[in-house]
Amino acid sequence: MQTSKYSSPPVDQVGIEDRIARITARSIKSSMKVEGLKMALSMIDLTTLEGADTVGKVTQLCTKAQHLCDEFPELPNVAAICVYPSMVNVAKQALGESGVKVAAVATAFPSGQSSLEVKLTDTKLALDNGADEIDMVISRGKFLQGECNFVADEIATIKEACGKARLKVILETGELGSLDQVRKASDIAIYNGADFIKTSTGKIPKAATLHVTCVMLEAIRDYYLTTGKMIAMKPAGGISKSKLALHYLMLVKEVLGDKWLTNEWFRFGASSLANDVLLQYRKAQVGGYQSPDYFSID
């Protein structure tokens, strides 16, 4: 599918709404909820992407990643820390042998409005600093201009540069205009080397939704049915409550199946989700409603 003719199937938005309504009507209780909360924690890419990021801030976040809640030793660590390329070495050092990965946003994040040369340099910087995963953005301007080949080639080039690092391709779905476009962008990313497809940068108001995620999961499923190859998914932005996270897991379970329910194949890009999950987890373990004052903020 390296040509300019990307023939993605149409998406019916109201149909997606119906599907999501059924998912959110699911009741996730007791043992399922506890398992879901643990799973959600293990899938978090704990994120800080600010102009104001400092060594101190990133180090604190890395501490948080390894000490989510020492009261419950059975809890997993988060999957990764997600930072700018310049902070990769800081994070790498702080995380040590914890197993928590370091993901770096690259390719002129968040707008992607730069040359391929700059984007490659950006990516190489992150990789040289030790990033395990690269979160790239697609060129939405080119995509909206209909230059799908340009977008495809860019993804393929960055993928080549990534070597062993896993590549997450951020579609910035909130800028694409329709679910049909989300599907098309997903297919372009998947067919050109994305290991993950990711919804959003978190830098515009319209971030991940269950609806957009559903469309992207369908693209992943269709690719899997055609090729037998698994692609991972990462919704990012706007997911700060456990209940919503659990709905995402339910969506993954129903659209893709249990095989995708590990942090190898599914991630949440989030900064404040972890504490809400911990709040809910503690409630499930010790009973009673909890206060945020008992959970560390980093």
Binding site: K29, M32, E35, G36, S42, V100, K101, L261, N263
Partner: peptide, 15 residues
């Protein structure tokens, strides 16, 4: 590789 989960995300009764 980050920790792998067992897949135990199964429906509990919700009567």
């Amino acid at each position: 590789m980050a920790t792998k989960n067992k897949n135990t995300f199964e429906f509990a009764p919700a009567p």
